[in-house]
């Protein structure tokens, strides 16, 4: 464990961009509000996608639900990354050393790994299945893991301020 932040993050926080974020009356606040809104949209779309993969809404076409929800998930995730980067930059040297933030980054990596494995191995098998067809066990597992991981990401994100 390092005692102080790597120079990169000290430099990021001290940069003109970092200063501008802190000194603006509205940028930090807007990023904070935007992060929550993006999270709400992300969680909603993730829930639809993952619950379908877990076997809910069986009368819908899994491939159709997957492709529709995925578009929203990706857009909301980009919104989360953008607003999160703004919040991070303002206090980079402190936040990078925060244990809960490090845990959150690891969880995000785990969530993205789950997405990659699902997209490569499972999604192609699900895409052409008709409504009411049983889904592969891998789809169920991926869906349930995804919900659990992203909820934990959200919980750890909110907890950064308290550790």
């Amino acid at each position: 464990m390092l005692d102080s932040a790597p120079g990169l993050f000290v430099a990021l926080e001290g940069s003109g961009v970092g200063q501008a974020i802190r000194q603006s009356t509205w940028i930090y606040m807007a990023a904070n509000v935007g992060h929550i809104l993006a999270l709400a949209v992300f969680a909603g779309a993730v829930a639809v996608l993952d619950l379908r993969m877990a076997g809910a809404f069986a009368a819908t076409s899994p491939g159709h639900v997957l492709s529709c929800a995925r578009r929203v998930v990706v857009a909301a995730f980009l919104g989360l990354v953008l607003t999160g980067a703004i919040l991070f930059t303002a206090e980079a040297s402190h936040v990078i050393m925060n244990r809960v933030f490090q845990f959150k980054l690891a969880l995000i990596a785990l969530g993205l790994l789950n997405v990659a494995l699902f997209e490569i191995f499972t999604a192609p098998k699900v895409r052409e299945l008709p409504p009411l067809a049983p889904l592969p066990a891998a789809a169920k597992r991926a869906g349930i893991a995804s919900i659990a991981i992203w909820l934990m990401v959200a919980a750890s994100g909110r907890s950064i301020a308290y550790f």
Binding site: A54, G55, K140, I144, I147, A148, L151, M152, A154, A155, S156, R158, S159, A161, Y162, F163
Partner: peptide
């Protein structure tokens, strides 16, 4: 599946509950 969802809910709620409030470190 219900079991997993409950587990996920416990994780989600346990995080903030175990954390200190922003004023907790004062």
């Amino acid at each position: 599946m219900t079991r997993y969802l409950l587990l996920a809910a416990v994780f989600a709620l346990a995080g903030p509950a175990a954390a200190h409030h922003g004023w907790g470190s004062y």
